[in-house]
Structure formats: C-alpha cells, structure tokens
Amino acid sequence: MKVFTIDFGAGRAALAVRVGQPGELPAALHDLGLGTPRPVVTVVGGAGGMTAADLDGLRAVMAEGVIPAIHDSGATVVDGGTDAGVMRLMGRARNGFPLVGVAAAATVTLPGGATAAAGAAPLEPHHSHFVLTPGREWGAEAPWIVDVAARVADPHPAVTVLVNGGRIAYDDAARALRAGRAVLVLAGSGRAADRIAGAREGECGNDPATRIAGSPLVHIVQISDTAAVRARLRTLLTPPS
C-alpha cells in the first residue's frame, strides 16, 4: 500500500491509494493526509442516469446550500469519485475542501491507464484524494464509502446527502441509516430522492423508499429552498452540545 499521484493534466492532480481490506484504511487515510478527524458529508445518488438538465437543476442548491454548509462546518466530502452525475457536480463545485472519491478499482480508469473492465468510468479530475478498493461491479465500493466516512469523521458528525439516484442510492441510504448516520434527502432532485420524499407524504408502492422515509434519521428538504438546505445540513454537522 503506497500513496501515488494521479495526474489529470491542466495542473490538476490528486493523491491516491489502493487498499485491499478494511484494516488498511487507518494507515491509508493517514498517509493521504486525512488522519485528522473532521465532520464528513457523504454525497450519494445519481451518476450516469442523470441528464444535463438534471445537473443544471442542482447547481443552485449545491452553490447556495450544500457547499456553504460544508465550508461552515469545515467538512470533508466523500463520494464515489467518478466523472458522472452528482460526483461530477461536486468536483466542479469544489473550492478548497477535501473531496475524497472512493471507487472499486476495476470499475474506473486512471488517466493514461488501461481500462480494467468493460464499462469502466473515468475518475473525476477535480477531486483531491482517491481511495481505490477491491471490486469489479458498481456498488462494490458502497461499504467502503461508509467506512471511509466513519474513520475520517470519528468523533465528529457524518451526514449522507442523497441526490436523485437509482437502485444503488437506496442501498447507500440504508447503509448510512444502519450506521446511525443522518440522511438528508434533496427532494425535487429526481428519482430515488423524490420517491423517498413521496413516501414520507404517504405515497406507497416502493418498499425501499417507504422503509427509508420512515426513519427518524431521514431529513427531507426541497432543493428549491436553498437556505433551508444550508441550515439543515449545517445543523446536522454540528456536534451536540
């Protein structure tokens, strides 16, 4: 296990490390310079299934709600690291905070490297750090994302923000809830997020959405209310007195 640099060109580079088992994470995070605990925001949700219009509709809530709350709390952000959907949006919006992409190594490509598997995706070039994990299928990185967030945050709060999302987003939210982590659902962002918001309002028929919506750890805020998103996320990232 050795830290290396991923050079994306145009003056952009990120530190990265490959890990093989969870027990390697503490040393890996320390070597990446992420050993000092900080609050964590984990961003999960839409990737390749999001359209350009979907992303355009999220720019205001990210710029006026999510990003300011991250800065207010001094948080580190953890996501899936690929150049698609909300991960692309987070990378383009990053302005100084640590942004850690956690991805299964065989599902992504590095600049100038060989494609490990059919359908592998490029890494998002504005991230500051990457943790590359075992796994050959999308979703294999999910438990690692939870573990990385927990280790970076402890003993500070960690919050999962769910934006849009497909099938894997339900699993990501459920994992966060099992870890005792608050989940902030951005209603109006589409797909899984909107189904969870609908289930909270009494709409039935989607079992994962209904189960998630029923948790007291789930907070639902409309993307159109950017001030409320900022205030709620900032509150969730503030340690209890």
Rank of each mutant, 00 (worst) to 15 (best):
I223Y: 01
W144T: 13
A60E: 15
A176M: 09
R59W: 01
I223L: 02
L25E: 15
A14L: 07
A169I: 07
G135Q: 08
I67K: 04
P157H: 06
L29D: 04
A176K: 11
A231I: 00
V3S: 12
L132I: 01
A140C: 12
L236R: 06
D56E: 14
H129K: 05
P208W: 08
P155E: 13
R136Q: 10
T235D: 12
D207W: 04
T5V: 15
V44P: 01
T238L: 00
V44D: 03
Q222P: 10
L55M: 11
R94K: 08
A13Y: 01
R38K: 13
H156T: 00
D7R: 03
M90N: 05
T5R: 13
G57P: 07
D79P: 06
P216R: 12
I70L: 09
D79F: 10
P134L: 13
A192R: 00
A231R: 08
V40Y: 15
T226R: 08
F97Q: 14
I70D: 09
A13R: 15
H30Q: 14
S224A: 13
S73A: 15
P143F: 15
A16M: 09
I196T: 08
G139S: 10
R230P: 02
R94H: 00
G198D: 12
A153K: 11
V40P: 15
I220N: 11
M62C: 00
G9Q: 05
P143W: 15
A173R: 10
T51M: 03
S224E: 15
A149R: 13
L177P: 11
P216A: 13
G165H: 03
L177W: 05
